[in-house]
Amino acid sequence: MQIEDVEKLAELAKIELSKEEKENLLSDMEGILNYVKQIQEVKVEDIRPEYNNRNIWREDKLESRDFSSELINKQFPDSKDDFVKVKKIL
């Protein structure tokens, strides 16, 4: 891994990093990847990865929940008339 890789990952993850933080992360990543790469030596059957958890759907109908819209609205960092206000996307 190079410092450019850390920069690219930080861009994907939407995190701003200082030069020092990038350098620290690079050395942390090397340590951690060096540890976890031991799984590459494990011999396993060539199975499709098993995803034991399957989606359970419910009918698309209105059900009551105990959320209060007031409590939710109060959490919006910025809002107008009970709507969350977002920055311009385009």
Partner: peptide, 23 residues
């Protein structure tokens, strides 16, 4: 805004794991 928020809000270990997971 996303970047500034997440950088100010997340500590070092959380960032480490987000970056590792992204990788």
């Amino acid at each position: 805004s996303y970047k500034k928020t997440r950088s100010a809000g997340f500590g070092a270990e959380t960032r480490r794991r987000i970056i590792l997971g992204t990788y």
